[in-house]
Computed example of a mutant assay.
Amino acid sequence: MMKEEQVTKKEQIKGTDSMDYCFIQSMMTQNEKGLRISGSFIPQAYNNMVEELKQKFGESLTKNHLKNRLKTLKSGFSQWYDMFRGTSLSGFGWNSETQPIEADEEV
């Protein structure tokens, strides 16, 4: 007889704007504490962030959830940065004097 394989389903957690904000604040705190070395958070930083966010949101968060969310946030940031400040010359830009986002007429 063949053994039945147990399939473990990974719990997905949908990030909200408030969770993202708290996560970013938590990352900044860990960075200020010196728990980010050479651009990467050390395991203790992730442990601290997981505990902090669990207390605020009661979700069953893990280090992997946070790492995946960080990748998503970085990707989104990168796209917006390139559009408004990067070298892509998208035609969009930030007017620091009047402070709106502006676009060239043809865009």
Rank of each mutant, 00 (worst) to 15 (best):
K3H: 12
V7F: 02
E11F: 00
E11P: 07
E11T: 04
Q12K: 11
I13K: 01
D17V: 12
S18Q: 12
D20C: 05
I24K: 02
I24L: 01
I24Q: 08
I24T: 10
Q25C: 09
Q30W: 04
Q30K: 08
L35C: 11
R36S: 15
R36W: 02
I37S: 14
I37D: 14
S38T: 13
S38V: 04
G39D: 13
S40G: 12
F41I: 02
I42N: 09
P43R: 01
N47F: 03
N48T: 05
M49S: 09
M49G: 10
E52C: 04
E52G: 09
L53D: 07
K54W: 03
F57G: 11
F57M: 00
G58V: 00
E59P: 09
L61R: 04
N64M: 00
H65Q: 04
L66M: 02
N68D: 13
R69V: 01
K71I: 04
T72F: 02
K74L: 05
W80C: 15
D82S: 10
D82W: 05
M83R: 10
G86V: 00
G86W: 05
G86D: 06
S88C: 09
S90A: 06
F92H: 13
F92N: 14
G93R: 07
W94I: 09
W94A: 10
N95I: 00
N95D: 15
E97D: 14
T98H: 13
E102I: 09
A103T: 02
D104N: 11
